[in-house]
């Protein structure tokens, strides 16, 4: 069953077209990875899905429902069904870890604080931060902050999780703790769209890999195809360069 469907999507920054005729499907419980050179539009695609940048043409569908990005209610609805973790952690610096995780369920969804806090503690324990509830973001390492950001996204009980290079700002030693967290989510059947430069990880967790370049989807296929037997010259070039590193 299709969970997230992107059809002929186009988006511009000013007069500059950044995404053109993007087509992409993510099935329920599936993990799809977006790869591609810097500036190819991967982050922009996630921003469009979340309604941070209105599309010029095309459609985004969630569970078959088309999102109208001019409609505030639709945008709000999508933000409660789709959660995102950005490249930079974007935690609220003025709140401690527990509040970072609980504020949206309490203030946006209006759920009882006590109940949300219990869930948040479980989530934070699961990402290995059960003892950091009262710490502030600037007292945590990059990997810890990124895991708080993941917990904050999960606290909203999203159907779909978007991850944008969540390990790229981290020291190599910290990458694994974050990847482990994502692996756990994968085994639980969370639908995910992941932008990543960790090719070994992409190959391991994804059922499908989408290669983007210059605002276009160049090639889509299972990891085996994209990494071992790419069909397009542009993909071969990119994969060749990346795997030689």
């Amino acid at each position: 069953m299709r969970h997230l469907d992107i059809v002929d999507l186009r988006a511009d920054y000013g007069s500059h077209t950044v995404l053109e005729r993007i087509n992409l499907e993510v099935g329920k419980g599936e993990i799809v990875s977006l790869i591609g050179p810097s500036g190819s539009g991967k982050s922009t695609l996630l921003r469009v899905i979340l309604g941070l940048l209105p599309p010029i043409a095309g459609e985004v569908r969630i569970g078959g429902q088309t999102i109208d990005y001019r409609n505030k209610r639709d945008v709000k609805a999508i933000r409660s069904r789709v959660a995102v973790v950005f490249q930079q952690y974007n935690l609220f610096q003025n709140m401690d870890v527990l509040r970072n995780v609980t504020i949206a369920p309490v203030k946006v969804k209006g759920r009882p604080r006590a109940e949300v806090e219990e869930e948040a503690k479980l989530l934070l324990t699961r990402v290995g931060l059960g003892d950091k509830l009262k710490s502030y973001p600037d007292q945590l390492s990059g990997g810890q902050q990124q895991r708080v950001a993941i917990a904050r996204a999960l606290a909203l009980k999203p159907e779909i999780l978007l991850l944008d290079e969540v390990t790229s700002a981290l020291d190599p030693e910290l990458v694994n703790e974050v990847l482990d967290t994502i692996r756990d989510l994968a085994t639980e059947g969370m639908t995910m769209l992941i932008v990543s430069h960790e090719m070994a990880f992409v190959r391991e967790v994804s059922s499908k890999v989408v290669f983007m370049a210059a605002g276009h989807v160049v090639e889509t296929g299972p990891p085996k195809q994209i990494f071992d037997n790419p069909q397009m010259a542009r993909t071969q070039d990119f994969v060749g360069k990346i795997l030689r590193h």
């Binding site: 941070l52 933000r79 409660s80 974007n90 935690l91 946006v108």
Partner: peptide, 9 residues
């Protein structure tokens, strides 16, 4: 940080 605030609704 503002963007994060928007995306969580």
């Amino acid at each position: 940080e503002l963007e994060a605030a928007q995306t969580i609704g």
